[in-house]
Design a protein around this nucleic acid. Structure first.
Lengths: 331, 331
DNA sequence: GTGAAAGCGCTAACAG
DNA sequence: CTGTTAGCGCTTTCAC
């Protein structure tokens, strides 16, 4: 009833028992006489008692909160991962603490405070962490797992897809359809995945015995539409236009397609385009995008299970989840 | 250095002072002798001491955490609002507790536990709350504010746009371009905004002296592409095709445009379409969508300020933020 | 099966 | 300016 905080002592008093007994009843931690239990339960109900989480946490020094470090909330890719995280935290009775992982990490007032201050039991990091950075030094000794972004050489448990193989699959698909002059539109490689996807492209081409013309490879600054547009422009200026493009993100792919069309080229007839990510948008865009899909929710869920296992004292192995090529109209 | 938790007593001991003095230094709460301060700071640095948030919270019974109830993380609309929330919580030194607000609220194990258990100081609710529901009974006595979803008749502080006026503006734009037979594609009206946008359409039409043919109004079950597609199909079967459509969401608008085009109609030449939301997608889609934009980030930020003010004992007034019509190609 | 009491880490009131 | 002490709300020995 009351919105006011009612402490366990009030319940004990009303029920005519000790606080220890109340605690036993609400936690089912030890056998309690049925009659006593009823008295306690009645008192709990009457007062609308809810155990204060803070008192409990202080005592047990376990917060049952997990911190999620997200590079960008508004990016649906991360949003879906968070959804996956949430699905398992909810089941396990954990709460989710969300923090923005800013590009430039300021010493001191960081999102990691929550963890340092023992507000959270562990961290799930979706952000890229430079091994040389302040952030890495801060986070290294903490119980954390990486999701989607894998740190090379780091021994931290992580879950992600095999970006290299996914790129190989995408390019192989193009190869199988008879393409030879396959271009790559990639992004600057601060993010490891960009690097890995690039290598996948290179390896698939090499395995097919195709010499890659360096001008087929366009590196965009970021990965938005405008960048894709520009990269496609560069491709368009080539004497022999590639017959297919693998873009390392759907946004890049869409920007490129727009450029091709503006130049009077048909997709996929004149030039086929494969993207990466399977954004909701890629289904609606015309032509609908052929693209590589990642299991985002699963990525988040597994990362969470990994962290929970780690917190439980286990030493779980990192996980690589399956990707899939979604074939639509653009290639 | 040590990742192990070091208590304030350890710092006091090392510095040769009392815990009270340590507390004063780290909180700057009372003047401390410069020399003493230095000793304490040295000890803090040496031990890598970080004040345990839980102890502090228990003592001050203020968690500096805010709970955000989100209907759907993966929906970019909510994601951007959360971004706005985060921007102010970060500035004010609050943490963000994120919870999914499920459609069907199960009694007991709810996301509101966090609040009942005093884990959070207040709630920002982005979800629709039926005044008759369990959830409403639960949340009513708590410190909360509504964001984007406004409860009719409820006295809870809220921030949102004027959906009615926004719809009037959209329809008026169409009217100004000479359209008369303007159709409405709306969604089932569990959400108040759908109802308000519908009324805006009706009022704008009435004010223009145009009798609305009931068949112009198509009500979709949900608000996804397929629904827009279906609604457009119904419109297409009319003897006199409307010359314009106002769709209460961009997804509906895009679904409709696809249907029109499939039927050989040009947008906007044969039929103009205005959407609502200004999703990222609406800019990329072809034709680029003319649509109503909401200031999502601002919505989140203001809601947070409202809550914070409320927690500070003030009684802030609800806010209505400005929307804007973004004119592109579809109308 | 139950109660008394200690103590998690911290801040603030009170003395000095 | 600094130290002593109480106590926030809870769980968990340890007795009985």
């Amino acid at each position: 009833m009351a919105s006011e905080s009612v402490p366990i002592t009030a319940v004990a008093e009303l029920a005519g028992v000790s606080v220890a007994t109340v605690s036993r009843v609400i936690n089912n931690s030890k056998p309690v006489n049925a009659e006593t239990r009823e008295k306690v339960e009645a008192a709990v109900a009457q007062l609308g008692y809810r155990a204060n989480a803070i008192g409990r946490i202080l005592r047990k020094s376990e917060t049952r909160m997990l911190l999620v470090l997200v590079p960008d909330f508004a990016n649906p890719y991360y949003a879906e991962i968070v959804q996956g995280v949430e699905s398992v935290t909810r089941d396990r009775g954990y709460h989710l603490l969300l923090a923005d992982a800013p590009q430039r990490w300021e010493r001191g007032a960081t999102a990691l405070d929550a963890l340092h201050n023992r507000l959270a039991d562990g961290v799930i990091c979706l952000a890229h962490i430079d091994p040389e950075s302040e952030l890495h030094k801060e986070i290294a000794p903490l119980p954390w797992v990486a999701c989607s972004e894998v740190m090379p050489g780091s021994k931290v448990p992580h879950v992600s897809i095999d970006h290299h193989q996914a790129a190989v699959d995408a390019v192989q698909y193009l190869l199988n359809r008879g393409h030879q002059r396959i271009a790559l539109i990639t992004a600057e490689e601060e993010f490891l995945w960009a690097q890995q996807r690039r290598q996948g492209y290179l390896d698939a081409m090499a395995r097919a015995g195709i010499a890659v013309d360096p001008r087929w490879i366009q590196t965009a600054r970021k990965a938005d539409y405008a960048d894709g547009h520009m990269a496609a422009g560069a491709l368009l200026s080539l004497a022999a236009l590639p017959t297919a493009v693998f873009a390392v993100s759907d946004t890049l792919a869409i920007g490129a397609i727009k450029a091709f069309r503006r130049a009077g080229r048909q997709v996929p007839q004149d030039i086929a385009v494969v993207g990466f990510d399977n954004l909701p948008l890629s289904e609606v865009f015309e032509p609908a995008l052929t693209t590589v899909a990642q299991p985002m929710r699963e990525l988040g869920a597994q990362a969470t299970r990994l962290l929970l296992a780690r917190l439980a004292g286990e030493t779980p192995a990192s996980l690589t989840l399956a990707h899939s090529l979604v074939v639509r109209e653009s290639a």
